[in-house]
Design a protein around this nucleic acid. Sequence first.
RNA 1: GGAGGCAUAGCUCAGUUGGUUAGAGUACUUGCUUGACAUGCAAGGGGUCACUAGUUCGAAUCUAGUUGUCUCCACCA
Length: 881
Amino acid sequence: MAQAYHELPKTYNPSEFEDRIYQNWCEKGYFTPDAKSEAPSYSIVIPPPNITGQLHMGHALDNTLQDILIRYKRMRGFCTLWLPGTDHASIATEAKIVEAMRKEGLSKDDLGRDKFLERAWAWKDQYGGRIISQLKKMGSSCDWTRERFTLDEGCSDAVKEVFVRLYKKGLIYRGERIINWCPHCKTSISNAEVEYEEQKGHFWHIRYPLVGGGGYVEVATTRPETLLGDTAVAVNPEDERYKDLIGKYVLLPLVGRRIPIVADEHAQLDKGTGCVKITPAHDPNDFEVGRRCHLPMEVVLTEDAKITDNYPKYAGMDRYEARKAIIEDLRAGGYLAEIEDLTHEVGTCYRCGTTIEPMISLQWFVKMVPLAKPAIEAVRDGRIKFVPERFDKNYFHWMENTQDWCISRQLWWGHRIPAFYCDECGTMEVTKADSVVCPKCGKPMKQDPDTLDTWFSSALWPFSTMGWPNETEDLKKFFPTNTLVTGYDIITFWVSRMIFSSLEYMNEIPFDTVLIHGLVRDAQGRKMSKSLGNGIDPLEIIAEYGADALRFALATGNSPGNDMRFSDEKIEAARNFANKLWNASRFVRMNLTIEDTALPAVDDMTTEDKWILTRYNETVKTVNESLDSFEIGVALSTLYDFTWDIFCDWYIELCKGRLNDKESAGNEVAQRVLCHVLTGILKLLHPFIPFITEEIYQSLPHEDESIMISRYPVYDESMVFPADAERMNSILDAIRAIRNRRSEMNIVPSRRAKLYIATTHAEDFPVSSYVFFQRLASASEVEVAESFEGKLSADEAVTIVTPVATILLPRADIIDMEKEKARLNAEKAKLEGEIARLSAKLSNEGFVAKAPAAVVEGERAKLEKVRENLAGVVSALEKMK
RNA sequence: GGAGGCAUAGCUCAGUUGGUUAGAGUACUUGCUUGACAUGCAAGGGGUCACUAGUUCGAAUCUAGUUGUCUCCACCA
């Protein structure tokens, strides 16, 4: 049943309809998938956007690509699930919560853990809707009714379940390791969260006197304060210089401790003096040396990077104060040999920028090697594919070199580690229960105060959001999911962890395809960032240009995995396209009298109808193929070209004759073909620019309640007419050639001229085509014949040669004979060159013998055409003599 | 230091297993208020596909090297 339709306003103003349309989709429940549906499922994993953040271009790009895929699949008849989520527990989030509380005069310490979490939840509810409303503005077709939060009850159960399982399998352990400690955030942060920045510093060369006299060894350090924690000096076992010192002792300056000289390959022969001070508690390499050589650990810094009470002289000093003091003391004691300037990369906290302090600490770890193995396998054997493929190299590189993953964080806003300790007897229990009584002494146990790394819970997203560990309908229907869309910067953080987590807990891959996109940069190619202030707010773009324009700009000129620049020109081009579509639709709409969407009988169709339907179907084919292979940019540019150049600039113009003649039989035929192709264009474009396509769809005769739930066009061979398309091309070629020549000769369009078309293909230029020449090539009249010999002499006319015809324009007084001759000669030379090139290629035995037959045939046909062209030009020239 | 990407028109970028005269958008030049659209229409100029060598009948495309540039990882006693 066709639906009633309405007028379109004269100007395209997206703000007038985008919100209304979105609300309508929500009310109709189009976004809510039915897990019991028979249709095949297509599901996408999306990153949970941070609750504390504002929607930025990165989100907008992610979101646009995801939504295009989801809408496309939905229109192809899939039951689609796109789970929205908000926030994850992280240092950044907690920092923002703390900041928000500080403004209310509250602090973490005053509140205590329980009160803090209570406030944080209230705060989450207050701010949590913000990013979702922003995503809705973009047209995201998430199922908002299933929105999840990583700390929601269900998700928390999943996290506990996983933790306990891994612990029982021995894949989670608690141990002492060197971790990156942020003295400001007072938490450990993972390697991936450390940002390196170049800093100017010094290399201090320090002499450690040998015990029992006989000189000293010289070591160098950038962090002299760690000297307090030295428990050895290492030399390379191969180093001849120090061979006889191994096993001897040195006296640690300022401290007076006797520490051994040990042999370890960590000390390199060609670096510095070849002697290395070993501080096992404050350096990851030294920690390893300490472990190999069974050295004691000496902790010298507190949580906030101050010297511990064990060193009364420096106790309580901040690490930098202590550095100064220690250097002074070393200098005074004559231990300081040399100070060297250097610039080096220093690790800083990605959140607060504080210099990281490597510290020994009791933390929880996940053993990575057993988890990484099947995850590597899944990508290697093709069960999971990266698009583009080259990103699997990044993935392998990380997976194969990964070290055990420190998962504990000293935060409150996160999943608390489900481990309990008994103060009385030291027993530890790992359990899903909320409170535990010590199995040995019956006393209540205390839960570990730490929380889990944000990626530990995020890694479970593909299934924890669907209700796992319960067996839900969603899980049955939608897991494993199909596609993950994300930026390459997140492959190691999140993608890899989802893969090994899913393989470990579900025995399944989490998704089969990872579509990687690049970063959005500003017009100068810089990364968008708050500190640079070059970020572009997607919401401002939407307010000014509309969500469709934003989506179009993000999806176009964008190939998988490559960075893109965002500029005003791009968004304007996108808006202009929307405007063009709007106006073309308005034109079609105002010429419509039909009330249903049926196509006319093929016999009633004209050549141009068959031509546009052929071109349309070719477009449909390309678009479907491109989207199936995730080439979103290619699909969109194909549609752009077809819509603008073929449909608007040619077909609509070709139809104007029939449309103006309201009484003709052709009028209705033209209406029906126009309406059919336009509706098809709208459907094809809907995943990219959902709002405008819906608004126009509703204004045309249409079958479905909404374009969103209509079927995506598929290639229809019965509507492809190669012969007619070819014939139409001859006419278009001729029109283009005439326009070209007239423009070259500066003849204004209003100056009309009679056209004489000399051709042996008279059937290509039927009487019905004359109107095209009149409307589009400024012809006053058209006459077609095999030859105009005797009727019109060459010096009376301008000659235009196309592959199938020679067109004569009667020479009015505007044309310069010499200029014309020169032009024809130039064209002759060009064609001769082309013939030479093609004949050389075709007479090349290697080419004819080895190239595919189709290619050779194509070249031959081309040569034939060029030869015909040349013949026309030559004869025109001869006639001029 | 290790790994990877990118280099095509003034600018921003496409270019799908090697096969048109290498394409868009934008900018530029010229002409048009043509009854949907000046957010437009028509026409045009503009490229040694970074450089060098190789493979091939044929290279923007494949290989090696060089230069420039970006990213990730690691290290820095």
